[in-house]
C-alpha cells in the first residue's frame, strides 16, 4: 500500500521551524540563520536547502518554476519539480514571469524578478569565510565581530596571483552594509541582479543547515577594491547562436570534432522565448 504523502511532504512542525528561521533571516539580511535541516528524499548537497524552503512556502495556488544552472529540463530541476508536484499538486511553469516561486540552482533568471515573486536559491557552501577558517565557531565569531579581513585577503591573494579577482562563481557580497554573504554559486554576472531586486530572495543550505535571505530593495554590493573594481563576465562580440541575444549570460560550447567554439544562452526558457517571439514576427510578416 502506498500512503498518500502529507501536503508539501513535511509534517507541520517541520514547516513551522523552517518558517520561523526564514522570518528571522528576512529580518537580518545576509545573516545565516541555523535551522534543523530535515532528511529529504534527495541527497544533501543536491538542493535540499532550497527544496525545504520551497516546501515550507508553497500553497495550493502557487505556480512553481525550478531551474538547474539555467535549464528547466535538467535532472536536478526535473526531480525537484516532480517531488513538489507529487506532494502538493501545484502547477509548474517554465516561464519566469508566470511563476510565484522560482527555485534555482546557480543562476538568477535573465528576466528581472517581479514584486510578488520569491526566488529560492540552493546553496552548497553558505560560509564565505570557510576558506579563512575551517571551524564554524571561528567563522561565526568573525561574522559577529564584523571582521571580514579574511574575505578581503582571499580576493587580494587572487589579484597577487592572477592580476585580477578570479572568482568564477559565488563572489562574496556585502548585504545591507553589514554581513558578508555568499550569493550561492551564481556567476559574477548575476551578482548585480541581487542589488535592489524587486522580489524576495531566499537562500537555503540543507547540508550546512543554514537559511539566509535578501529582502527586496536591499543593498547588495560585491566586494571590490578601488583600483580593482568588480566586473562581470564579458561576452563582448559574442551572441547566442540560437536566438542572437547579446546581453545575457552565455555558455561556451565546443564542437568535439571540429573544435569550433559557439555560444548559447544559459537561461533556456529565456532563449526559447526569444526564439518564439522571433518566429511570431516572422509568421506575421509572411502573411501580410
Amino acid at each position: 500500500m502506498i500512503a498518500k504523502p502529507h501536503f508539501a511532504f513535511f509534517d507541520e512542525g517541520s514547516k513551522k521551524e523552517i518558517r520561523r528561521a526564514t522570518l528571522k533571516a528576512v529580518a537580518i539580511p545576509g545573516y545565516q540563520v541555523p535551522f534543523a535541516s530535515r532528511e529529504m528524499p534527495i541527497a544533501r548537497g543536491w538542493g535540499t536547502g532550497g527544496l525545504q524552503l520551497t516546501l515550507s512556502l508553497i500553497g495550493r495556488n502557487d505556480v512553481l518554476k525550478v531551474i538547474d544552472q539555467g535549464a528547466d529540463e535538467s535532472v536536478n530541476a526535473v526531480s525537484i519539480k516532480k517531488l513538489v508536484q507529487h506532494t502538493t499538486g501545484v502547477s509548474v511553469t517554465e516561464k519566469t514571469q508566470e511563476a510565484d516561486i522560482i527555485q534555482s540552482r546557480h543562476r538568477i533568471p535573465e528576466k528581472a524578478l517581479k514584486e510578488d515573486q520569491i526566488l529560492v536559491l540552493q546553496v552548497p557552501n553558505p560560509e564565505p569565510l570557510r576558506k579563512v577558517d575551517a571551524r564554524e565557531y571561528m567563522t561565526k565569531r568573525m561574522h559577529a565581530e564584523d571582521d571580514y579581513s579574511g574575505a578581503w585577503l582571499l580576493l587580494f591573494e587572487q589579484i597577487m596571483k592572477f592580476g585580477r579577482m578570479s572568482t568564477g562563481a559565488s563572489h562574496p557580497v556585502y548585504v545591507n552594509g553589514r554581513y558578508v554573504m555568499t550569493p550561492s554559486p551564481i556567476p559574477r554576472f548575476d551578482n548585480p541582479k541581487m542589488h535592489q531586486s524587486k522580489g524576495l530572495i531566499l537562500l537555503g543550505a540543507g547540508r550546512e543547515k543554514k537559511i539566509f535571505a535578501v529582502p527586496p530593495y536591499t543593498s547588495v554590493e560585491s566586494l571590490a577594491f578601488d583600483d580593482y573594481p568588480f566586473t562581470v563576465e564579458s561576452f563582448e562580440g559574442k551572441a547566442c547562436k540560437l536566438c542572437g541575444s547579446t546581453d545575457v549570460f552565455l555558455d561556451e560550447i565546443i564542437d568535439p570534432d571540429t573544435g569550433e567554439r559557439t555560444h548559447q544562452c544559459n537561461d533556456t526558457s529565456y532563449c526559447m522565448e526569444q526564439l518564439n517571439s522571433e518566429e511570431k514576427v516572422e509568421v506575421e510578416n509572411s502573411y501580410v
Binding site: T22, V26, L57, D116, I118, A213, P215, P216
Partner: peptide
C-alpha cells in the same frame, strides 16, 4: 506567506 510578504 502574508507574514513573509509583510516582513520582507
Amino acid at each position: 506567506r502574508k507574514v513573509v510578504h509583510s516582513m520582507s
